[in-house]
């Protein structure tokens, strides 16, 4: 297990290095000079050069890459060109919204999907199964921004119980903050849950065909007990894989829902930074997102090993 962990850590570091250089060099060859963007089209040549020197854009590319990596490790992400505040502050402001939102959506979607998947699989080809599959189809087919609007119309406009948008901020207290996250959480969780339900169901159905399921039944284990004790854990690998992918998406891919609810999240920040050519924000945000995806994958791999002892690299007798 220790060797397994160590190997995974090394791979993780290498992946991070590769990702960082890709991010850096791709942004480097993109057309568009940040200095020119900041000063406008009428800027004088020497003012431009001065700003470029100030931003460090005149140094050789390798020096800048290494300098960036060094700063990154120390937590210094530089100053945003457009907002003129430290990038780390800018990102942190958004993370305290986006991260809890992603976690909440993931929890909600799991709480819906796994029980539904189990119900569908244990009632395979029966009315209950079809019902769950219809829910899942709907969840996948309905665009989540439209579903979000429905939620706002119902809970905010009609019932008047939840805010229609905006984020109260954590300093306003847990209850206002969480209630402003509740509708976005539901809107984000629905399509995720729909997909996860399908994955859970099909993975369970696959596992229920395995020989060891029949063995368990031959020992006198009822179908229900067999499903919980023998099938479920074996069926979890694809489910955990999808959950990892969904969580990565939830961290930054939620810009539409953020816009519907006027939430200052990571998705919006990255969109604005790209639009304004605030490359220093883009670069650091992208590498941080890449890092979080890599960390999530690492956690998923760890979960695989927890689920399946064959992946722990244990020795034979």
């Amino acid at each position: 297990m220790k060797i397994f962990l160590f190997k995974r850590l090394i791979t993780m570091i290498i992946t991070l290095l590769v990702a960082s250089s890709v991010v850096f060099f791709v942004l480097e060859i993109l057309p568009g000079d940040p200095a020119a963007v900041m000063l406008g089209i009428n800027a004088e040549a020497d003012t431009l050069a001065a700003l470029r020197a100030e931003l460090g854009l005149d140094k050789p590319i390798a020096v800048r890459y290494l300098g960036w990596l060094g700063d990154l490790v120390q937590g210094d992400l530089g100053i945003s060109y457009t907002y003129d505040v430290p990038v780390s502050e800018l990102i942190m402001e958004r993370v305290i919204l986006s991260f809890p939102l992603a976690v909440l959506s993931m929890i909600l979607s799991t709480l819906i999907a796994i029980p539904l998947g189990i119900i569908a699989a244990s009632n395979h080809s029966k009315p209950m199964d079809f019902l769950v599959m219809i829910f899942s189809q709907l969840g996948i087919a309905i665009p989540n921004f439209w579903f979000a609007l429905l939620l706002i119309i119902f809970f905010s406009v009609f019932m008047g119980v939840l805010p229609a948008g905006g984020f109260a901020g954590w300093e306003a207290g847990m209850i206002p903050a969480l209630s402003s996250l509740l509708l976005p959480t539901i809107a984000l969780a629905l399509p995720q849950a729909a997909i996860l339900t399908r994955v859970t169901r099909s993975s369970l159905l696959e596992v229920l065909k395995e020989d060891y399921i029949r063995t368990a039944q031959a020992k006198g284990s009822s179908l229900r007990r067999t499903l919980w004790r023998h099938a479920l854990r074996n069926a979890m690998i694809p489910v955990v894989t999808i959950m990892g992918l969904q969580f990565s998406f939830l961290l930054a891919g939620t810009i539409i829902i953020e816009n519907v609810f006027y939430l200052p999240g990571i998705g919006r920040l990255i969109f604005q930074a790209i639009a304004q050519r605030d490359l220093i924000v883009v670069k650091n945000l992208v590498i941080l997102l890449a890092a979080s995806v890599i960390v999530i994958n690492f956690i998923v791999d760890m979960l695989y090993a927890v689920i399946d002892p064959r992946l722990r690299g244990t020795q034979n007798v």
Binding site: D211, Y212, R214, K219, S222, H230, N234
Partner: peptide, 28 residues
Amino acid sequence: NEEQMCRIRGNKIGMIFQEPMTALNPVK
């Protein structure tokens, strides 16, 4: 019925299957 059979299987009648590689649960 199924419930009564569960009390027979493994208790009154035991069964050994052909494929030892797949007949055991890999995660237990």
